[in-house]
Structures are given as C-alpha cells and as structure tokens.
C-alpha cells in the first residue's frame, strides 16, 4: 500500500515540478529580447575597454609622446613590443619612429600602459580583430598613429 501511495505521490509531485518549470519558461516568452544580432547589430563598447595598445592622440597635439625609452618593452611579460627611436637633431631627445607590437602574443594586461613615464600609451577600442596571416598581427603603432582615421580621445 505504501508503495502505491509513494508511486502516485511521485507522479503528482514530479508532474507539478514540471508545471512550475513551464510557468517560468512561459513567462520568459513575454520578456524583451536580450540577444544582440551580432555582427548586424553591435553593442556600444565601454570606454574602459582594454583593446590592443596604441599611441595616445590628443586633440590639438600633432605628434605622439613616445620617447623610445623602452620602459614598456622591458615591462611587457610576453615580448610584444619592439621600439626604434632616433634623435631628430643633435642634443635633442629621442623620438619613437617605429613601434611594433605583435598582437598575437599580447595578453592585454596593461602593464606597459602603467609604466610609461610620459603616458604615451593607452588601450584602443578595437575588438573584432581576426587575420588570415599571423604577420598581420604585427602592427606598427607609429604608422597607425599617422593614419587619418586615428581616433582623437581626450
């Protein structure tokens, strides 16, 4: 007798738990859609986003601030950065003319940005980066800086 009662109780309790579950899924039908149809629709990036590094471009300033001091090169855990600097004229300070990063090795840790003595670096807002060759990951930040579409951010 006990077994019979248990049998029917299990059916009722179990069945009711499924009904409760379905009320939840049913009510979700009437909630707004939260999925974004990427890549047709794109979300606004948060300004704090850490993309690959880039040279700071400030409004009203012509050049970048990199002194080619190499501090960031030494701080980077993954040997991402290679810098070359020249002295434009005798007695003047160095200026970076080539700033290569190998993005495929970068862990986006931000240690280079932290250590730069003149705050010449920042993180870019680029995110969907996919390349067909690993050499496309090597980006010259100085060349990128000189491109007309380089973003000016305060």
């Amino acid at each position: 007798m006990k077994a019979v009662i248990k049998y029917f109780r299990d059916i009722i309790v179990g069945g009711w738990s499924l009904v409760l579950g379905y009320t939840v899924t049913l009510s979700e039908f009437f909630k707004p859609i939260i999925t974004v149809q990427y890549p047709r629709v794109k979300l606004e990036m948060d300004p704090a986003y850490r993309g690959h590094i880039e040279l700071v471009k400030l409004p009203g300033e012509d050049g970048h601030f990199c002194l080619a001091c190499g501090t960031c090169e030494r701080a980077c855990p993954s040997n991402v950065i290679k810098i070359q600097g020249v002295k434009p004229k005798a007695g003047a300070g160095k200026v970076g003319i080539m700033y290569l990063i190998d993005f495929s090795r970068c862990s986006l840790c931000g240690l280079c940005v932290d250590v730069c003595p003149v705050d010449a670096l920042r993180h870019s807002m680029e995110y969907d980066l996919a390349f067909t060759s690993r050499w496309d990951n090597v980006i010259d930040l100085v060349a990128r800086f000189n491109e007309p579409q380089a973003q000016e951010r305060g």
Partner: peptide, 22 residues
C-alpha cells in the same frame, strides 16, 4: 558588463596590482 566597466576586460582581468588595483 560590470567588471568590464571597471577592469576593462571580461575574463582575463589582470586588474590587481601590488599595493592596490589599477
């Protein structure tokens, strides 16, 4: 989203630094 807003990334954060947070 909340963590992205403060740390700048969503999974591999590298947010803490010696002596505080970055």
């Amino acid at each position: 989203d909340i963590l992205n807003h403060v740390t700048g990334s969503r999974l591999t954060y590298a947010y803490n630094r010696f002596g505080g947070v970055h």
